[in-house]
């Protein structure tokens, strides 16, 4: 229970992360680098300070609390942030009057995390529960394992949202204490997968196959990114692979580019594609193709 992990968000009343009303724990760190990543704050395994410039009211409270002198107010009374000095201690986040600073990543013990996750226990009902998500939660495998087993011992429904890019032994370790896997599927073609995410999908498909063979409950999550992985060919290839597995359902995640401001706030370059009004139509089309493979679409 004293194992620590780095959590960047605890979302209560999470409705779209598995069945029922859930609390989702977002863990930091991810092995993939998807071009369209919606959660740039999840990529690095370390805590990071985000600075939302548009919210800053130049009050200067951050300047007085920062031990590293990473904040300054100019002669024109404007606020400056020097990211390279920041050690992510979080002091300025608490002091900020404009809610312009947010620290992504808190160090928490298993016990603290469980306490937070179970705040809403009364709301879980018969089908809800706790979801571990990220980043890739299994990068913090021991932390996940302890949380999931503790939850199962209290008969709480558990879900793991994974990109699949971990060693099989890491995944098999949590198999018994995970009720449903929310498994990302980004591209069927290995080269394409590499182009889009920085890694091929060999390990991912292997893990998926093994989970399926083990009889795990699996929901596939397919982000559809305009012009990157939404061609008919892409979808047909996915359909072929998935129809040979035991998949409970597939969820299509239509693309949005609302994460842009987060990239700016974290001082990260964003390469995420623009969205278009066509996106919804494309996802409907994809649903149609997948249904023809006999797959259940959520």
């Amino acid at each position: 229970m004293s194992t620590e992990g780095i959590v960047f968000e605890i979302k209560r009343f999470a409705v779209h992360d598995g069945p029922g009303i859930r609390t989702t724990l977002f863990l930091k760190g991810c092995p993939l680098r998807c071009l369209w990543c919606h959660n740039p704050e999840s990529i690095s395994p370390h805590p990071q300070l985000a600075y939302y410039a548009h919210k800053c009211i130049n009050c200067g409270e951050c300047v007085s609390v920062c031990p590293e002198h990473a904040h300054a107010i100019s002669l024109e009374k404007l606020h400056y942030f020097e990211r390279r000095k920041c050690r992510s201690c979080g002091k300025c986040e608490t002091a900020c009057l404009g809610n312009a600073l947010q620290l992504y990543g808190m160090r928490m013990t298993v016990q603290e995390t469980l306490n937070a996750a179970l705040e809403d226990r009364d709301f879980f009902g018969d089908d809800g529960g706790v979801t571990l998500s990220g980043g890739e939660p299994l990068l913090q495998a021991d932390f996940c394992f302890e949380i999931l087993t503790a939850l199962k011992r209290q008969a709480i429904h558990t879900a793991l949202d994974t990109c699949g890019q971990v060693k099989w032994k890491t995944m098999s370790m949590i198999l018994n204490c995970t009720d449903i896997f929310l498994f990302d599927f980004k591209a069927a073609n290995p080269q394409k997968h590499h182009k889009l995410t920085g890694s091929d999908n060999r390990q991912i498909l292997e893990n998926l196959q093994k989970l399926s063979d083990a009889g795990a409950e699996i929901e596939i999550r397919m982000p559809l990114i305009p012009a990157l992985n939404d061609s008919d060919e892409d979808i047909h290839e996915a359909g072929k692979i998935l129809s040979n597995l035991h998949i409970k359902s597939i969820k299509i995640l239509p693309y949005h580019n609302m994460a842009r401001s987060k990239y700016d706030a974290l001082g990260m370059a964003n390469k995420i594609p623009a969205s278009s009004s066509q996106d919804n139509v494309n996802s409907l089309h994809a649903v149609e193709i997948l249904r023809n493979y006999g797959l259940e679409i959520n």
Binding site: F13, V15, H16, P19, G20, I21, D122, F123, G125, D127, G128
Partner: peptide, 18 residues
């Protein structure tokens, strides 16, 4: 966005029940 789809409807109902 929170209450869209079947999941959203189920969540509203569970909330009401709780």
């Amino acid at each position: 966005a929170t209450v869209q789809g079947n999941e959203g409807l189920n969540a509203m109902r569970s909330l009401l029940k709780t």
